[in-house]
C-alpha cells in the first residue's frame, strides 16, 4: 500500500483554492470556480455521459478501422521495404498534417453524417499507427530475419510470427497517439457540425453561457482520457510484459 502523499496533494489543493478565490473575486457566471463545476457535474451527469457515449462510439469505430487496416499495411510495407520506401515520403507528408485540419471535410461530405465523421477519425488515427508500425516492422533486428530464414519461414509466416510481435511495443505507442487523435477529431468534428456528442454539449453550454456545465463536460473528457490511458497501460503490461521485462 502506498502512503498517501499529503505534501504532494497540497499542490493541486492550493491550485483549486486559488481558482476558487479568483472565481469569488470575479463573481461572474462566466468564470465559475471548482465548487460550481462540481455542482454542475452533479446536475448534468446524465446528459454529459450520454453525449460522451456518442463521441466515444464514433472515436472507437474510427480507431478500430484504422488499427485493422494500418497495422497489416505497416507490417507489409516494412517487410517489403522497397514498396515501403516508395511510399515513405507520402506518409511523412500526411503525418505533418494536423488531424483537425481534415475535420472541415466532414462539412463538405455532410450528406453522409456519421459515416463522414468516422472516415475523418479513421484517417486521423491511421497516420500515427501506420508510421509506427512501418518503422517498427522494417527495423526489426536483422538477426531475427536471419533466424526466420534459417528456420525456412515464408514471408507471410515471418510477418505474422516475427515482424508483428516484434513491432507490438512501437505499435502500442502509435495506438496511444492514435487514440488521442481519434478523440480529438471526434470532438472537433462535432463542434463544427452539430448533431450530437460531447462537442455539441460544449458548444451548447457556451451558447447558453453555462460555463460551469461546459467545464463539467471537460472534466469528463479528462477523466475519459485518464481511464483510457490507464487501460492502455494495463493492457501493455499484460501483453507486452516481455518487452518491458527484457528492457529492464
Amino acid at each position: 500500500m502506498k502512503r498517501t502523499d499529503v505534501l504532494g496533494l497540497s499542490v493541486p489543493l492550493v491550485a483549486l483554492i486559488l481558482w476558487q478565490a479568483m472565481a469569488l473575486l470575479k463573481h461572474s457566471p462566466l468564470f465559475p470556480g471548482p465548487f460550481e463545476v462540481a455542482l454542475a457535474i452533479g446536475s448534468h451527469f446524465r446528459e454529459i455521459a450520454g453525449q460522451l457515449g456518442y463521441t466515444l462510439m464514433r472515436a472507437a469505430i474510427g480507431f478500430a478501422i484504422a488499427v485493422a487496416s494500418m497495422v497489416p499495411l505497416g507490417i507489409f510495407l516494412g517487410r517489403f521495404h522497397k514498396i515501403g520506401r516508395l511510399l515513405e515520403p507520402v506518409i511523412d507528408m500526411l503525418a505533418t498534417l494536423p488531424p483537425p485540419a481534415v475535420v472541415p471535410l466532414v462539412m463538405l461530405f455532410t450528406g453522409t453524417g456519421d459515416a463522414a465523421k468516422i472516415v475523418v477519425i479513421a484517417y486521423a488515427a491511421a497516420v500515427p499507427l501506420l508510421m509506427n508500425t512501418y518503422e517498427a516492422s522494417y527495423s526489426v533486428h536483422p538477426m531475427m530475419n536471419r533466424v526466420a530464414r534459417s528456420l525456412q519461414l515464408g514471408k507471410f509466416e515471418t510477418m505474422l510470427h516475427v515482424d508483428l510481435p516484434a513491432s507490438l511495443p512501437m505499435i502500442a505507442t502509435g495506438a496511444r497517439l492514435a487514440l488521442a487523435s481519434s478523440l480529438l477529431v471526434s470532438i472537433t468534428s462535432e463542434m463544427l457540425l452539430s448533431t450530437n456528442g460531447i462537442g455539441v454539449f460544449l458548444q451548447r453550454s457556451q451558447e447558453y453561457f453555462s460555463i460551469d456545465a461546459g467545464l463539467a463536460g471537460i472534466a469528463f473528457i479528462s477523466l475519459t482520457g485518464l481511464i483510457i490511458n490507464a487501460l492502455m497501460f494495463k493492457l501493455e503490461k499484460r501483453w507486452l510484459y516481455w518487452h518491458y521485462r527484457e528492457a529492464a
Binding site: M143, M144, V147, Q152, H161, V162, W242, H243
Partner: peptide, 29 residues
C-alpha cells in the same frame, strides 16, 4: 536458401531468441 536439416546457432543468443515466446515456445518455433 537454408535447407531443411541444416540449423544455425548464432552468436547473439539474446537477439536470436524471440523474447515474447517462452523457452519451449522458442524450441517449438
Amino acid at each position: 536458401q537454408t535447407p531443411h536439416g541444416l540449423a544455425v546457432v548464432f552468436q547473439d543468443y539474446s537477439r536470436s531468441l524471440l523474447p515474447w515466446k517462452t523457452n519451449i515456445e522458442n524450441v517449438l518455433f
